[in-house]
Every structure is written in C-alpha cells, then in structure tokens.
C-alpha cells in the first residue's frame, strides 16, 4: 500500500469530528486546521468541548464520526511526533513517586516494552527539569510540590517527548504569575524552534499577547485563524452568548489601555 498523505501541509487536520457523551454531542461536526509552527489557543465557554477536542485528537475519547491527521498521517502512526500535557488535576499527586520519575515517564513510549529507563533517560529528564527551573526538586516527592511546580513537572515530561506538535490542556490554570510567565516563555521558545503548540486556554485577556493562532469553540467551531483576524467582539459574542458583557469588559476594556502592545508577534 502506498503511503498516502492527507493534508500533509497541516500540523493538525480535523475533519467532520463528532464526539458525544450519552447521546449528547460534546463536539459537533468539527473541521479544524492548524498550520505548523504556530501557537494556537483553543478558547470557548465552559462545556464547549475544549478538553474533549484534545482528548479525541489523542485517542483518549472515541469520536463517533470524523478523522484526524497529524502532518498528513493518522495519529496512531505519528505518536512519536506528539507531546501531551494533561490537566494537572487529572492525576493523584499523592502517588508515591518523584518529580524526576514523572518526567522520565515521557520517555516510556520511546523506550518500548521491557526496557527500563537508564542513565541516558535520567540525564534527558534532568535536562528537561532544568529547562523548567525545577532541577532542585528532582528527588522531591510530587505531593510536596506546589501547584505551579507540579505544572512545570508536567511540562518537563512533555519536553522530553521531543515532539513536533504539543497538546496542552489548561497549562495556566491555577498557577501563580511566576509559573505562568515561565510556562509561556517555554512555549514561545518551542514555537521559535518550529514546533506547533495547541493549548486549551481559559483566559481571554492573555490570548492576544501569548498566542498567534486561535480557535474559538462552542461545541461547533465558531472561528479559527490568526489571532489578529479572529479575535473580534463579534466572534466572541457568538461563542460566549449571554456572558458577553463580562467578556467585553475583560477582553477589550484592558485592550484599550495597551492597544499599542498587541500584535507584536508575526
């Protein structure tokens, strides 16, 4: 069989994706394309299916219809090119393990069955911890880390995956300002290295300064494209509906003050 590529020019190509829970659609007939080398925010109101979107792309949730390709091939054959940062609250942080050990887990896919992580894997994991400035906490039990530190450990685990496209589920949720700055700096560096980043994000205020691509989602895709084109009051109103009074004050009120500061990436 010849290796047929489907939309290979796109880092992520999602076509007709539908996901339902108990007969209720969480995502309905989604077409989303993300070009390589961008940092894309997935935004939308609560229950819009943002996390479900990432989970169905990664195969954690079975879609009822549609297909997904990553750099032109189905996800199953492209796992080595994909990195994943789940929501921090999705695991039990009282699990008896250390920060270094959690980071090493990012290498398990590459190690394969029966092989144990050795010195090389340990070195790789330590370097990743250094990148997120957590090297001093390598042997710390993970329950003793603060929320922001736990988030950085998760980020380090994705870094050792050395992927081309990263999916991050709310990496800035419930972390302090220092961690948020550190996380954004790392994500920007990855983008400069040519990686594609797809980030579920909850804070509309920071979308313009952090991201260059965005997808507005509310069960259906509302709008997608460059932040400069998509981030409009009209699009946000269509996604957020009644909450828009709050949104406008939050997203555009702050904007007027630093209008000059926006759109600095490109």
């Amino acid at each position: 069989m010849t290796d047929q590529l489907h939309e290979p020019q796109l880092a992520l190509h999602v076509e007709d994706l539908t996901v339902s829970y108990d007969g209720k659609p969480a995502l309905w007939d989604i077409d989303i394309d993300v070009p390589p080398g961008v940092m894309a925010a997935i935004v939308g109101p609560n229950g819009a299916g943002k996390s479900t979107f990432i989970k169905s792309v990664l195969g954690l949730v079975k879609p009822t219809a549609g297909h997904v390709t990553i750099f032109g091939r189905p996800y199953g054959t492209q796992r080595r090119k994909v990195g994943y940062v789940p929501q921090r609250s999705s695991v039990d942080w009282d699990f008896p393990t250390t920060a270094l050990d959690v980071v090493t887990m990012g290498l398990y896919g590459r190690l394969g069955w029966l092989r144990r992580p050795g010195r090389a894997e340990r070195e790789t994991a330590l370097r990743a911890l250094e990148q997120v400035k957590m090297q001093d906490f390598a042997t710390r039990q993970i329950s003793q880390l603060s929320g922001g530190q736990q988030q950085r450990v998760f980020l380090a685990r994705a870094l050792v995956q050395d992927a081309d496209i990263y999916f991050l589920d709310e990496p800035m949720a419930g972390v302090d300002a220092t961690t948020e700055r550190a996380v954004v700096a790392i994500l920007h560096r990855l983008r400069e290295e040519g990686k594609t980043l797809i980030v579920v994000h909850h804070d509309l205020q920071t979308v313009k300064s952090y991201f260059d691509w965005m997808v507005i989602l509310n069960v259906r895709p509302i709008a997608q494209g460059r932040v400069s084109e998509v981030y409009t009051a009209d699009n946000l109103r269509r996604a957020y509906g009644g909450q828009i009074a709050l949104i406008e004050r939050e997203a555009f009120g702050a904007d007027a003050a630093n209008a000059a500061g926006s759109g600095e990436h490109g």
């Binding site: 989970k55 990664l58 195969g59 954690l60 199953g76 796992r79 994909v82 994943y84 789940p86 999705s90 695991v91 039990d92 699990f95 393990t97 959690v102 887990m105 398990y108 896919g109 190690l111 069955w113 029966l114 144990r116 992580p117 685990r157």
Partner: peptide, 22 residues
C-alpha cells in the same frame, strides 16, 4: 517485574499512557 514501568504509568496517569500508545 517485566511490566513495571507500564504498571506504574498506567496507575499514575492512564490518559498520558494512552497518548503514548500503551
């Protein structure tokens, strides 16, 4: 002993384990 790291990962973070293809 043989499946130590797989057991550990699936016990700790089954979602991430799935994304790795386990």
């Amino acid at each position: 002993a043989a499946l130590w790291k797989e057991f550990k990962l699936v016990s700790f973070d089954p979602g991430f384990a799935t994304s790795l293809g386990l």
